[in-house]
Amino acid sequence: MTKNVVVTGSTKGIGRAMARELHRRGHHVVVSGRDEEALRSLVAELEGTEGGTVVGQLVDVSDPDSVEELWAGAVGKLGTVDLWVNNAGVAHTTQTIVDTTPAAVRSMVETNMLGTIFGSRTAVRGMTAQGGGQLFNVLGGGSDGRIRPGMGVYGATKRGLDMFTRALVKEVDGTGVRVGQVRPGILVTDGWLREAAAAPEQVAQQRRMLNILVDHVDEVAPELVARMLASTRNGEEIAWLTSARLARRFMSPGYARKNDKLARYGL
């Protein structure tokens, strides 16, 4: 069945890859972001390939009114929203907490935390009014509670979103709205490459481990999208980099050498 989908933060990274995959599968997709040029480019790209309807809308997820306008625009163009994916996020992951600038702290908290909270409130209210729908929050490093160097602030936002999403699952239980979370793993995105460029020595020292842990967005998106579309239960938890997948990589002789993922990006 064709679905109407909204993906926030879909002009870059895993959001863009998921939007492409949803469109390729024939679903109608509302792509969104703050960069007008990037948004226009993505809409033109998708409209030039076979798939569902594509709608582009500028949004600042940290502004609740802007998020409400995103919902209204999606409903105005598509009629309903069957699936809403809160993906917009900002990551600064190479500095200690005390060295992270106030601007970086504010950006991560406003985009990651407020953006997901505002998006969730808007989507749940709208879906309740229309009789149902599915919401997924995309989490990330730190959402599992593990402490990682340089990720104190970023990890705190994602850990908080894990708790927020679990609370929302309980609140919508028994309604026509379903809430879930997605842990996409460690992905090489524009943001990841920016952070890597700021810490070249760290990347060089950890190259073997990184080649085991990281993945390309275009390889991960199809599975994540397939599992979101197939989900029928409230509280769904979708993870790419599972313990089993990690174990297979570590136990596979020469995995990092045979899968030099960083080479694609000149690292």
Rank of each mutant, 00 (worst) to 15 (best):
A129Y: 01
E47L: 10
E110M: 11
T111A: 07
E37V: 11
G185N: 05
T232C: 07
A226W: 01
V105Q: 07
R121D: 11
T232R: 14
Y265Q: 09
M163G: 12
L262Q: 06
D63I: 04
I97H: 03
L262G: 09
T242V: 10
E69P: 00
T94M: 09
R121V: 14
V153N: 04
A230C: 05
S10H: 03
A196F: 14
Q205R: 11
H27I: 05
D63V: 01
M163R: 11
R257P: 00
T49V: 15
V5W: 02
D65H: 13
M113W: 13
A197N: 04
R249P: 11
A239K: 09
E195H: 10
V67M: 07
G235C: 05
A103V: 10
D99L: 06
V214S: 00
T11E: 08
D65V: 15
F136G: 05
R20P: 01
G145E: 08
G141W: 00
A197C: 00
G89F: 03
K77G: 00
S143K: 01
E236H: 05
H92P: 00
R106D: 14
I238Q: 02
A38S: 12
N211L: 11
V138L: 07
T232L: 04
R227Q: 15
P222C: 04
R208S: 11
G131V: 04
V169H: 12
T94N: 10
S41C: 08
V98E: 13
H23W: 03
E201I: 00
K12M: 08
G13Q: 07
Q95D: 12
T165I: 02
L58R: 13
R121Q: 14
G73V: 03
V217E: 15
V81T: 09
K77R: 13
V153T: 13
E171C: 07
G152F: 06
Y154D: 07
L229D: 06
L42Y: 03
I212L: 14
E36A: 11
V109M: 10
V43Q: 01
I117V: 15
D260K: 05
A44Q: 15
Q57D: 02
G254P: 01
Q134C: 12
K3R: 15
N112E: 07
S62V: 03
P200G: 07
V81D: 02
A244N: 04
L78V: 03
V6H: 01
R183Q: 10
V169E: 15
L46Q: 04
G152C: 06
R25Y: 00
M108H: 01
G174W: 06
L229N: 06
Q206D: 11
L83C: 03
L42W: 01
A156C: 04
N234H: 00
E223D: 15
F136Q: 03
D35P: 02
T53V: 12
V61L: 03
F250Y: 13
V153H: 09
V90T: 07
D218S: 08
L39Q: 09
